[in-house]
Design a protein around this nucleic acid. Structure first.
Lengths: 347, 347
DNA sequence: CGTTGACAGGAAAATGTTTTCCTATATAAT
DNA sequence: ATTATATAGGAAAACATTTTCCTGTCAACG
């Protein structure tokens, strides 16, 4: 691979001139400019981004920390992130942490060594976990899809509580009053969506019953287990809110296996609207999240943050001129009615 | 962030010594070594991998070119790649090309600029397309899961033809003789799996009938369309081989929508064994590929290639000492019988 | 006792850029 | 005509490493 020196020699100019032509960082006479372009084309010169990174202190890389890329939801999010990043000329490096804090720790260090320009987190982290990292790095961080409790760290996603609330209200509107909940254990899938459920019941004067909420990690198989649990009850709920489509699909499977019908015997509503929800039979009624869009917006906001930081670092003379970026982007969710919820018939 | 100079000063040694302690590249007295470790720990020093890359001419990065990360198959492959890469201390940067040759071109250039150490390709490429790239780069390239016709470029995957052959033979063994084919358009999903289909028929004395094979891109919706096509026939086949699970799921949907039963009225067999195939009802009988494993092995082979290259480049004196690496890894596939294939009843 | 060799450790070159600093030339102003 | 100013373009510093080359010390051996 040719380097800038070889181009300079070939074009009969100095290294500085080649650099200036490549970056347009300073005017160069048309004559020399032409010679440089010629040489670049002939030798198929591509500037070495490593050397650039070294001196500019900028890698144009962002790290995405994801619990599991092979999960449909995360893969879609990632795809959205990649889409915007590519447009903005950023590379995306993936860090699959399998929900292991130890692995994430390792990746944080790796990303510091690699000097990524920013990081997107796709899963739960506690503030304490981040504190150590934040102390030493000042690399912008952003949470996508899963919010973090009580912190100003940038976030892109939906209003989790409201979305869960809407889902449950939908069931209530259909006449259901015995509404089960299969909830997760992490912040978004547990606390937040659980909170939406609770509030929906409360606002509609339905008592909260501990015995029809079951806690499980996300995943099809856990949904199945959880539903088994609910069906063991002497009188099972007439509808169940599952905090993720994966859970809902598992639950659906279980109900069907028990010889019951969905939605005639039991209504189900999911959350996320991943691809799965449309291929399963009956098709899943669920809360739609604009997953790809969340990914895109995350990348957009993060890169905004990165480039803003770079600018203000240079001339800190005009602090108030740099208008604040909004660091919490809440996108719209919506309810998509398919085939797993029906009007409660009087029993 | 502290740099090596600061550590050197703090430990009262030279830069070289710090470097040697960090890399163990030359013995250092216990006394100095201890002082260096002390300083490193106190200042939480992490070597700047960019500067390292620059001088070592090695980034410890591999690029993965994937048509679409959000596709379950690719996401799983990616997860396998990432898993091994992480263990080997390589970073993975994703290049989502949406099957656009133009985008891939762009990414190739980007990867050259970024000096990735190797590239894994997860989709069709013609040799001509690669030729230009290979000419200038000498970066190791590997095909994962999709082979390339007539070339020695390293490959990891299954025996596509044999696997398709096995699938169709399974249908034949169940008594089917009118076997439709929904095939793709690219090399693996079209040519190769189509060839397996053809041979299976041939070996069993069943005539190949053009009218019951339909060409479609992969994707659930196309599977649906394709099956519509087949059902339009005055007498539709009693079984259909779909070259991917996505297609099979779409086809299944279509059959069910037409009021027919699977497998009673029509048997279906898919290919890949993605997650989807187990949640759909009835559960899909399909050819299992060890997807994650293919990813892992791809990364393993690529990294082997990379490190081998680095070594032989150094001392080219002993060319025969460096034993050849096998550059074609063919993993086992298997047939997984679930619920979409049944014995043909005499009609 | 003097020479050789081994070896620890430092100075400096090298990696491929960007950018600052400087010089020389041309243009404008007096 | 002379001075001032703008500007094109080159030389060299800077970025954070690794590694080569060199120096000085010490042990071993003649």
């Amino acid at each position: 691979m040719p380097n800038i020196k070889m181009i300079a020699r070939k074009a009969g100019v100095s290294i500085s001139t080649v650099s200036r032509v490549m970056n347009g960082s300073k005017p160069v006479s048309p004559e020399l400019e032409k010679r440089v372009y010629e040489a670049v084309k002939q030798m198929d010169y591509k500037p070495n981004s490593i050397a650039r990174s070294l001196i500019l202190n900028k890698t144009n890389l962002i790290g995405v920390v994801v619990p599991d890329v092979s999960n449909s939801f995360h893969a879609q999010l990632l795809s959205g992130i990649e889409a915007y990043a590519a447009e903005a000329e950023y590379g995306v490096i993936i860090c699959n942490v399998y929900r292991s804090w130890e692995k994430q720790q390792k990746y944080f260090n790796l990303m510091l060594e690699r000097h990524v320009d920013g990081i997107i987190l796709l899963h739960d982290n506690t503030l304490e976990e981040l504190a150590a990292f934040q102390k030493i790095s000042n690399t912008p961080i952003l949470f996508a899809s899963v919010p973090i409790k009580g912190s100003e760290i940038p976030f892109v996603g939906i209003d989790e509580v409201k979305a869960a609330y809407d889902a449950v209200c939908h069931l209530i509107a259909k006449g259901h009053r015995e509404i089960g909940l299969i909830r997760g254990e992490c912040y978004a899938l547990g606390t937040l969506r659980g909170e939406g459920y609770r509030r929906a019941l409360e606002d509609n004067g339905i008592p909260f019953r501990e015995e029809i909420v079951v806690h499980r990690p996300s995943g099809v198989e856990y949904g199945y287990q959880a539903m088994e649990e609910l069906l063991k009850l002497e009188s099972h709920p007439s509808a169940v809110f599952c905090v993720s489509d994966e859970i809902a699909v598992g639950a659906l499977d279980c109900v069907l296996d028990r010889g019951l019908r969905v939605p005639e015997d039991i209504s189900l509503i999911g959350f996320d609207d991943i691809d799965l929800s449309q291929v399963v039979r009956p098709k899943l009624t669920t809360v739609h999240q604009p997953i790809h869009e969340i990914g895109r917006e995350s990348a957009r906001l993060l890169i905004d943050l990165i480039e803003r930081k770079g600018k203000t670092a240079g001339k800190s003379g005009t602090p108030e001129a740099a208008e604040e970026i909004c660091t919490r982007i809440i996108l719209d969710h919506s309810l998509v009615e398919r085939e797993t919820v029906m009007e409660k018939t009087e029993s």
